[in-house]
Amino acid sequence: MTIYSLYIYDRHCACVYYQDWHRTKQPKRAGEGGGILNAVSQAVSPLATDSAAPTPSAFSSPRNTLSSTSGLVVAVGEDPVTPLPNPAEHARSNTLPFDEEAKLVYGVVLSLRNMVKKISGRDEQFTSYRTSSYRLHLYETVSGYKFIMLSDAATDGLRFVLRSIYNGPFLEYVVRNPLVPMDSRSQGIDNDYFRASIDRLVRGLSVFN
């Protein structure tokens, strides 16, 4: 029982936030010009090639305090702004770059959502699907934000978790944060408080081991 990753999409189909936990198959960094927004996740955003490249976000600190693999706070001091190239980058050659993965996740969810509506003939929501190795959960808000979580195949429905992410950290650190441009189409919603708050919430779950 575990939780792998969380994606948040806005109503313009753009991925605005990404975070992962026990994910063994890490995505490759998004390619330059792959259409991924700034301030989605420092772990997967394109590497800055020169100093003129836009910084991930005007307000988020460049340090990455949350290591996704160990679960420990690894950096308390200031790190260089440009993340160092990951030596394991070439070992991930069979995995998708993050920008393509984000599009595939959105495409699957959107198709299934339309399919469920069509088959039921009502305004019924698609909630989850399960494969042999993982389960995807969807929670969609009335404002069109889609919260998508990937967990272990054996977990029960996690929509209540997605709902509480929306009710708690999302409203507190994104909607009520004047520095986060909502609906901007050019900027994600990543910020340190939001990330830390989600991390706390998810690590406190009984299914997170």
């Binding site: 063994t24 998708l96 698609f126 399960r130 042999s132 993982y134 995807l136």
Partner: peptide, 25 residues
Amino acid sequence: IHAITSRLSPTGSSSGAQVIEGETF
């Protein structure tokens, strides 16, 4: 969709979707 779901696995190889759930079916 079935073909894509097997590629989205966050951990190792995966089958395609086995169960797809809505709210009532």
